[in-house]
Design a protein around this nucleic acid. Structure first.
Lengths: 187, 187
DNA sequence: TTCTTAGTGTGACATATCTCACTTTATAAT
DNA sequence: ATTATAAAGTGAGATATGTCACACTAAGAA
């Protein structure tokens, strides 16, 4: 379990054994079953999560009750309702298991201790945040430049594994088209 | 000039006079006229920019030559083609003045020195990156949940000053609709 | 197996948005 | 003041996508 975390961090900053041991003290492991919620809209957000295995969806529900998938989180991804997490306010999104999932949990308090106690980890989170920002800017560009079919093809190319694991109706919700339209596109 | 930068940073981390003096040595000031380019697609990205005054647009041009505004940057915003900047690769977006603009310029090298030399600044950039990510995630949600009219109204509410300063044809490009459609929406 | 539920495909029509062509109105330059 | 240029508005038809209704298939539970 912990190996995965170490590998992941060391892609960005190398750690000594002692340092990694220190890092580990800040995380707890949790396991969830398909359909369980890690975060519920309207409630507090205690943790940010690092996914060891499984698959999560981050969902925003609009006024009309329609669900929209803001992002999927698979192995090696960090996920949370980050605004609610950093500002300790109510969640505006829910985080739910699409598959049975194992995660490392990080309290905001421990996140801060980690950054204070080990500058390398602050460096690590900075790089993660920067590339997270870039990734979501790319998704915006994809919206601006492409129609539903092209966006679907881009997703196919970029995350072929996702397409195997997720029902198409969920992919539609992520791509921002109706499931009927997506169905017609793929045929 | 420098006051603006100091105020901006101190919203997140307090600085002593010495520390701020150290910070300043990493920046250079530049002035640009309307229509000038700070970054050109296909070229190297030397700097990230902090906007003192004026207005910039970050533009992605698609295969068909159509321009899409990825973001506007006004006073107190940081802007660049961050992927190209961090990875020192060719720009895939251009950055152009919508108005005469004054910026502080930060070389990647100096960005790194700043983070290494003063942990507070790394903290500052981390917070900026985190909230930048959150902001662009919100824009994605706005796309997923709203039609053109609603997105326009959200923008109006959220950045009323922008609407005064930019021609509607540019706003259309930012909102991802044709200028004709936007024109019909506002009437 | 049999039943139930989740996922998928498809037809018909409604709606949003785009595109192209043209006019009108501002704004800047001489 | 006059002319050029940028911005904005509008009509008409084309296209993309949404919605609703229904049929079909696959997969899990009894």
């Amino acid at each position: 379990m912990h190996d995965k975390l170490r590998e992941h961090i060391e892609k960005i900053v190398p750690l000594s054994d002692d340092e990694f041991a220190f890092v580990c003290t800040h995380f707890t492991i949790k396991k969830f079953k398909k359909h369980q919620f890690l975060i519920q809209e309207g409630e507090a957000v205690k943790y940010s999560y690092f996914v060891i295995s499984g698959l999560l969806k981050l969902v925003h529900t609009d006024d009309t009750g329609k669900q929209h998938i803001v992002s999927f989180a698979m192995e090696d991804w960090w996920e949370s309702d980050f605004y609610a997490y950093y500002t300790q306010t109510e969640a505006t999104m829910s985080l739910e298991c699409v598959e049975d999932t194992v995660v490392f949990c990080l309290l905001l308090e421990d996140y801060k201790k980690l950054c204070d106690g080990l500058q390398k980890m602050e460096r690590f989170f900075l790089q993660k945040a920067n590339f997270g920002f870039i990734a979501s800017q790319r998704r915006i560009i994809s919206w601006l430049t492409s129609n539903a079919k092209e966006r679907y093809e881009q997703l196919l190319k970029q995350s072929p594994s996702l397409i195997q694991r997720v029902p198409k109706s969920l992919l539609a919700t992520y791509l921002g088209v109706s499931r009927e339209t997506l169905s017609r596109l793929s045929s």
